[in-house]
Nucleic acid binder design. Structure first.
Length: 558
RNA sequence: GCGCCCGUAGCUCAGCUGGAUAGAGCAACGGACUUCUAAUCCGUAGGCCGGGGGUUCGAAUCCCUCCGGGCGCACCA
């Protein structure tokens, strides 16, 4: 519908530019939706935008535009008028709107998809939690946003790869191995204190018990280095498995599990650090490194960052940052046109230094972007649920999903802009009532299915033969809302903002519920019923396509 | 001190690539079930869009500044 307005206005402007012999009139006609109903269905501010170029007052330009509209306007509009400072308001014929339903039906499951991305390869890296413990609610937000963004990009014609970066080497993993080994030794009465920053969670003891069950006391004979290494790998395997399980429970499946140990630090058998050496040499060849105070620094300040950063510590070991550069260099080398990272907001300081590094390597850092996820506070009875990962006392993502279910978890984490802090109200999430926005949308879908079951009993079938019968204001509003869906998906894709879609679906559900209460679908008038069934079938398509993009189920009944 | 995010109705938040009289949900109050699902709908009430300045035909939206909250600023990851 918007495209129609855009087309006829553009044509009109073309006509004007010919008649008045003004060359440079080309503008992008932006079609808006007025807030007030008496301002019509669509409006355009183009007259105000080009008034200067023509040298007339905006309202006069608006008049010109209206006069020069192509004849097609007869079929489209009831009324076109000038308002305010120079807005042009279009009142569209009901039939023209309602006929657009056919596009929804014809496209079906594909309605809302586009070729915006033109098959461009995109890498979305998200979660990437260290396999040193269970996922918490912050990871869950990251996971759900990353997944929804991926789904939306996929629907928008991008070739998306979802990747989890396994941070499986370095200090944290060693610490985990040591912690498990200490718990293991405890099982044989060899008590020893956990290190200050060791892992204190109960699951560490569980893993130790599993090792005991498998290996008996044989680890006690190994050198502590060997034993710790074994514990580390055992724990990693167990925890990674748990992470995969947790993610699968909320409908998240990755295409790639990219191991730092194997891909960055060097494959098994390869000399450790090879990739790191390569990237270091590459950076060196660009002249952006500097030996200082016994360490090797990347001169990030030369690339706009606030400070320089150490790549090789004075003890000769590489920093995480060096590995990160290598990893992202590798993402570019793998041929991705755009590279999206979903990071916790506490990592925002790393964006500029990584961009600096990419630029220093001659890469186009505008192809790299980061979606920052602000913190989640779990609320219960109006109070924040206290958590301490250090002490091992925290509510895991699994706890939350077990309590409120996957659909609710996903929706709650998606309904807010990811750059806003989020209060996750467990009490509200648990309520199966009107207060809970997830059910509001799902209920609309279930209601539609229910109507179709009813229609099946009476033998009335949907039909597009008499769409002209659909002219109740609630019907027109509903159809107009449905037609916005492709645009909303595109918006969400471009802004990497699934919450826009979540909001939209609430609006669709609302328009539907209003309609339901106002107009009876299955009734004696078979033609009317057929047309209305056709309409709500389109509503169903939009709701189910939209929910799918959010990874939320569309139930048959509730 | 420097950087990023946030500040909109009692609460939680949309709107922010500038448009007309600023929205939703919840909470409050009053109504609608013999009907295709009341997990719904209708109505009432609720606002110096944190403060101040600027940019322009027009600012919640852009710029500056101040205030308040969160998070970063390692030879940790």
């Amino acid at each position: 519908m918007k495209e129609d307005i855009q087309r006829v206005v553009s044509q009109s402007i073309e006509n004007i530019s010919k008649t008045l012999d003004i060359a440079d009139l080309a503008v992008v006609v932006e079609v808006g939706i007025p807030k007030r109903k008496d301002f019509g269905d669509f409006s355009v501010n183009t007259a105000m935008v080009i008034a200067n170029k023509i040298g007339k007052k905006p309202r006069e330009v608006a008049e010109l535009i209206i006069e020069n509209l192509p004849v097609e306007k007869e079929q489209l509009f009831k009324k076109v008028e000038i308002a305010g400072a120079g807005f042009i308001n279009f009142h569209v014929k009901e039939e023209a709107i309602v006929n657009k339903l056919r596009e929804i039906e014809e496209n079906g499951e594909r309605f809302g998809t586009s070729d915006l991305g033109k098959g461009e390869r995109v890498l979305v890296e998200f979660v990437s939690a260290n396999p040193t413990g269970f996922l918490h609610i912050g990871h869950a937000r990251n996971a759900v946003v990353g997944d929804a963004v991926s789904r939306i990009l996929d629907a928008s014609g991008y070739d998306v790869v979802k990747e989890f970066y396994i941070n499986d080497s370095g200090r944290q993993m060693n610490l985990l191995g040591e912690s498990v080994l200490i718990r293991y030794k405890e099982l044989f009465e060899q008590n020893q204190d956990l290190p200050e920053d060791g892992y204190k969670g109960e699951y560490v003891k569980d893993i130790a018990s599993q090792i005991k069950a498998e290996k008996g006391d044989s680890l006690l004979e190994d050198s502590s280095e060997q034993a710790s290494e074994y514990c580390k790998e055992f724990a990693e395997a167990v925890l990674l498995d748990e992470i995969k399980k947790d993610l699968a429970d909320i409908n998240i499946f990755f295409d790639e599990w990219y191991s730092e140990k194997e891909n960055i630090r060097g494959a098994v058998g390869e000399s450790d650090g090879s990739k790191l050496d390569q990237i270091k040499d590459l950076l060196n060849s660009k002249g952006v490194l500097e030996q200082r105070e016994g360490a090797l620094w990347f001169k990030a300040t030369e690339f706009g960052d606030a400070q320089d950063w150490v790549l090789i510590k004075s003890d000769g070991s590489p920093t995480y940052f060096l590995a990160d550069i290598a990893y992202h260099y590798d993402k570019f080398k793998r041929g991705f046109k755009s590279i999206i990272n979903v990071w916790g907001a506490d990592h925002h300081g790393h964006v500029s230094r990584l961009k600096a590094a990419l630029r220093s390597l001659g890469l186009d850092d505008s192809r790299f972007s980061v979606v920052l996820i602000q913190f989640v506070r779990l609320m219960r009875q109006g109070k924040e649920v206290a958590m301490s990962k250090r002490a091992g006392t925290y509510v895991t993502m699994r706890d939350v999903v077990d309590e409120v279910g996957s659909d609710v978890t996903r929706f709650f984490l998606l309904m807010r802009s990811s750059e806003s802090h989020l209060d996750f109200d467990l009490d509200l999430a648990k309520k199966e009532s009107s207060e809970n926005p997830v059910y509001y949308i799902q209920y609309a879908h279930a209601r539609i299915r229910s109507i179709f079951r009813k229609a099946g009993e009476t033998g009335i079938v949907e039909s597009k033969e008499h769409l002209e019968l659909l002219k109740a204001p609630e019907e027109i509003e509903l159809v107009k809302k449905l037609l916005l869906f492709p645009e909303v998906v595109e918006d969400s894709a471009q802004a990497r903002a699934p919450h826009k879609l979540a909001y939209y679906l609430q609006e669709v559900a609302s328009e539907f519920h209003v309609y339901y209460n106002k107009c009876r679908v299955v009734d004696d008038d078979r033609q009317m019923s057929g047309a209305r069934l056709y309409l709500i079938s389109c509503v169903q398509t939009v709701l189910s396509n939209g929910l799918k993009l959010l990874g939320i189920s569309a139930p048959e009944r509730m």
